[in-house]
């Protein structure tokens, strides 16, 4: 009886040890969290519908811009990185007067604050209110700022989480234009 008990105890401790060892190995070999490089199920897909009357009373429909680049930017007036990236959006918009358009969509923000934000920081591109947050959900926006680049033809080609620069966006634009030219 004694020896059997000892064997039971040894067996159980060995088994527990093995399980725990596996567990520790799993924790130890785990890779760190993913960076800000953003995957999105949207990339390669047709852009979800974004259309409406902007804050400047002009109507906008993303489908009307199927022959140019569209940079859809989700922002909020309370968000500091959004404030910082704003001049970059203006810069990109200036660079692509002919072949591109920026659209800003306030996220978690009020119309008044968004209006005040644009009055303060400038920007003449369309700003569309996302009434029932349908676009934010369709784009899977987590926290502002987030930006999506739509290629001519209406395909989402890139997503950025966090502050962007005009150069960063243009790198993707130039890349894809070069590829298109190759073909």
């Amino acid at each position: 009886m004694t020896t059997r008990n000892v064997r039971t105890v040894r067996f159980i401790s060995a088994a527990m040890g093995l399980i725990l060892f596996g567990f520790v190995v799993m924790l130890a070999t785990r890779e760190g969290g993913t960076g800000t490089a953003s995957r999105s199920p949207l990339i390669g897909q047709l852009v979800p519908a974004v259309a409406g009357v902007g804050l400047n009373e002009a109507t906008f429909d993303v489908d009307d811009f199927s022959d140019s680049w569209v940079l859809i930017n989700f922002f909020a007036s309370w968000c500091v990185p959004c404030e910082r990236e704003h001049p970059q959006l203006a810069e990109w918009s200036r660079r692509h007067k002919k072949d591109g358009v920026v659209v800003s969509v306030p996220f978690g923000d009020t119309e008044e604050d968004a209006r005040a934000f644009f009055a303060d920081h400038g920007g003449d591109w369309p700003v569309l209110m996302d009434g029932d947050a349908a676009w934010a959900v369709a784009f899977g926006v987590l926290r502002p700022p987030e930006s999506f680049l739509v290629s001519p033809g209406g395909i989402v080609v890139a997503k950025w989480q966090g502050q962007i620069t005009a150069d960063e966006v243009d790198r993707v634009v130039n890349d894809l234009e070069a590829k298109a030219a190759d073909r």
Binding site: A76, F107, G108, D109, D132, A133, A136, V141
Partner: peptide, 14 residues
């Protein structure tokens, strides 16, 4: 209270 939660709430209702 996060904005994305508000967005999801609105869409779930919709």
């Amino acid at each position: 209270n996060a904005p994305v939660a508000a967005a999801i709430r609105a869409q779930v209702d919709e």
